[in-house]
Nucleic acid binder design. Structure first.
Length: 524
RNA sequence: CGGGGCGUGGCGCAGCCUGGUAGCGCGCCUGCUUUGGGAGCAGGAAGCCGGAGGUUCAAAUCCUCUCGCCCCGACCA
């Protein structure tokens, strides 16, 4: 009876209750009810981004853009520490550049935006019509190998010019058929590194080094455990010799690629004529690499850490670390509470959290407890409520985003200031551990075809529940088997793991001999 | 691009079958009350019902076309 009264009260307030566990959640539906819809709602509720009026393109709002800025800062430092310099290349690529590398053309041709005119003219009905046709169409960059290669060919003439280590932060456009905010949009922000080397070994080393940098970003900063591996031929970057990848498991147990690094061999050097004279006075083609991560990482953060109350941000890259919420009920409380709040903010802001100043938000809107939920949905790591009674005992009332919304505790003010860094570290670690546990619990060694098919088949085909995960299974290496599994189950080989031990077994699809397990999963 | 679903104030939705020009909850604004916390009461602002055309005395509601979003598929570093 009491439950129903409560439920009715909540419904009166328009608050939904999670159906299966009878717990109220800030996000409807919950992850288990409808994962894709939950994702959309989190993006909306956390104010990370919104769909724009341009098809397939998003508006990244300040709370979301701050994440990108923080990621950019971390990576930029890492790159620079390994000798990489930033530069900027044109948004427009002459069509003939793209035509230089056959596989590359094939890979990107279907999703290119093409600029064919250079001005607008007023038509008879007052509307603008494109005029001034270009002699050669320009392609809006889907990636910049070809145009950067053009520059590289001019910059490199001697082995003394190598290695050439360049990165650019920019936007790219790929006209995707089906878009999902942050995960696959027509335009997105990324970083693309391009290097040229004198030897194969050095280029390969650089390729793997950058993959390591990405792994460090993912694990130490984004708290996303990743598996390093190599892509199979069918998933390789168009034009690359080897594509290396980081694969992470999202909470719906699907895989998301969170960074790639390509060893391009001499393919692009040949196409762009990147040649140098060696110490032996011979003309050689350079060996090149390219590597990138994009705003897709924000999608990875959402789907790795988010819960039924919204976004959960890892402190290391959180848009902001702490929100202070003064509780002012009587007018005479206002001035002491605000004074206490500002003093606390100042004390916190003077501290550093892994090289970054602790960032503090102050929310003094007079809307009672509601503001607490706004910040929970936005995923801020630490929430602090400050009322007259806290001030009387010189303490603060603290909630952590890695714990339940009601598990708040009173902490002496000075102790809170002294331990905030520790608390943020603890949250960071908790998020990583939680994500790692989810991946471990949903990763299986599978050896029989039947088990494999069962693993990847939902019980309810009409409305598939969250199922599957990572299957470590043997694969003979043939594209036919790969395709068969994809056709049957929509499951692909995410990668051939780097650290996998050699072991003999038989291919999950055809039964032929295999020497190593690969990771099969459904993917974004 | 094929199959399915959906577009109604900022958010979530009802109304559509059985046409009569909008309603609910949350949020927002104002006032009073309350005062350790997702407050109560009263009042209020905000929607040309995705867009265009058609049928009709009259369309959110019926018909046609179109745009966008979501899911599945195809496709995809």
């Amino acid at each position: 009876m009491r439950f129903f009264l409560r439920k009715w009260k909540l419904m009166k307030r328009g608050i939904q209750m999670g159906k299966e566990n009878k717990v109220q959640t800030a996000i409807t539906p919950t992850r288990s009810q409808d994962y894709p819809e939950w994702y959309q709602q989190v993006v909306k509720a956390s104010e990370l981004a919104e769909n724009s009026s341009v098809r397939g393109c998003m508006v990244i709002k300040p709370w979301g853009y701050a994440l990108w800025e923080n990621i950019r800062c971390v990576l930029d430092n890492m790159f620079k520490q390994t000798g990489v310099k930033n530069a900027y290349f044109p948004l427009f690529i002459p069509k003939r550049f793209l035509e230089k590398e056959a596989e590359h053309v094939e890979g990107f041709a279907k999703e290119c935006a093409v600029v064919t005119h250079h001005r607008l003219q007023e038509g008879q009905d007052g509307r603008l019509i494109p005029a001034g046709q270009l002699e050669e169409p320009l392609v809006v960059r889907p990636t910049s190998e070809t145009i950067i290669g053009e520059s590289f060919s001019k910059w490199v003439s001697s082995y003394r010019d190598l290695p050439l280590l360049i990165n650019q932060w920019c936007n790219v456009v790929r006209w995707e058929m089906r878009t999902r905010i942050f995960l696959r949009t027509s335009e997105f922000l990324w970083q693309e590194g391009h290097t040229a080397h004198a030897t194969r070994e050095e280029a390969m080393e650089r390729t793997l080094q950058m993959l390591d940098s990405y792994a460090k970003l993912a694990e130490s900063y984004l708290a996303i455990p990743v598996i390093r591996g190599e892509k199979t031929d069918s998933e390789r970057f168009p034009g690359a010799v080897n594509t290396f990848t980081l694969e992470a498991m999202m909470q719906d147990r699907k895989a998301l690629q969170t960074g790639t690094s390509h060893f391009l061999g001499q393919n692009f050097a040949r196409a762009s004529e990147i040649k140098y004279q060696s110490a032996q006075e011979k003309e050689e083609y350079a060996w090149t690499t390219s590597w990138g991560v994009s705003t897709r990482l924000i999608g990875a953060i959402i789907m790795t850490h988010g819960d039924d109350n919204g976004l959960v941000l890892p402190p290391m890259i959180a848009s902001s670390h702490v929100v202070l919420m003064p509780i002012i009920k009587k007018p005479e409380d206002r001035s002491p509470v605000m004074e206490f709040t500002h003093a606390l903010a100042k004390a916190l802001r003077e501290q550093h959290y892994h090289g970054r100043k602790i960032e503090v938000e102050i929310d003094d809107r007079e809307i009672g407890g509601g503001k607490g939920w706004d910040w929970i949905k936005k995923g801020i790591p630490v929430r602090v409520e400050i009322g007259p009674r806290d001030i009387a005992q010189n303490s603060v009332f603290v909630g952590r985003r890695d714990k339940g919304p009601r598990e708040k505790e009173s902490i002496p003010r000075d102790q809170f200031i002294k331990t905030i860094v520790l608390m943020l570290d603890e949250i960071q670690d908790n998020l990583f551990d939680r994500a790692l546990r989810l991946r471990q619990e949903n990763t299986r060694h599978i050896d029989s075809k039947e088990d494999f098919y069962t693993f990847f088949t939902p019980k309810n085909p009409e409305k598939p529940e969250i199922h599957g995960g990572f299957a470590l299974a043997h694969w003979c290496g043939s594209q036919r088997c790969e395709e068969k599994i994809k056709a049957d189950l929509s499951v692909t080989i995410r990668c051939i793991p780097q650290d996998a031990e050699q072991e003999t077994g038989s291919c999950i699809a055809c039964g032929d001999k295999s020497t190593q397990r690969v990771i099969f999963a459904k993917a974004y």
